[in-house]
């Protein structure tokens, strides 16, 4: 919501939230999996959505044993799939109303 304060997390806090190394974080950002507010900043800041995305990426990387490029692709496709499933469900419901 527009009225809500946006929470940002610096890298120090991020390391408490997610088990990830400096090097892996750099890789992850390099692959565009999550974006810090300002990539040139001395210390990166991430918003909540980015933290959630990093958590998801780290979990998938550990449990599926896929490299970061694969994770980046998998996450993109998963998001697209979720969006398409949602749209498909909504369209099906609308179609049902028109069919008799």
């Amino acid at each position: 919501m527009a009225s809500e304060v946006e929470v940002t997390v610096c890298t120090t806090e991020l390391y408490q939230l997610v088990a990830i190394s400096d090097q892996d974080l750099a890789e992850l950002v390099g692959h565009g999996i999550a974006e810090p507010h300002d990539q040139q900043a001395v210390e990166w800041q991430f918003d909540e959505a980015a933290v959630a995305q990093i958590t998801r990426a780290v979990r998938l990387r550990r449990e599926l044993q896929v490299d970061w490029a694969g994770i980046a692709l998998a996450l993109e496709l998963l998001d697209e799939l979720e969006e398409l499933r949602r749209e498909n469900g909504a369209l099906r419901r609308r179609l049902e109303r028109l069919e008799e």
Partner: peptide, 12 residues
């Protein structure tokens, strides 16, 4: 393991 992990991973 890798094959089944991809198949059953709760995120996927």
């Amino acid at each position: 393991y890798r094959r089944l992990a991809r198949k059953y991973h709760p995120d996927i």
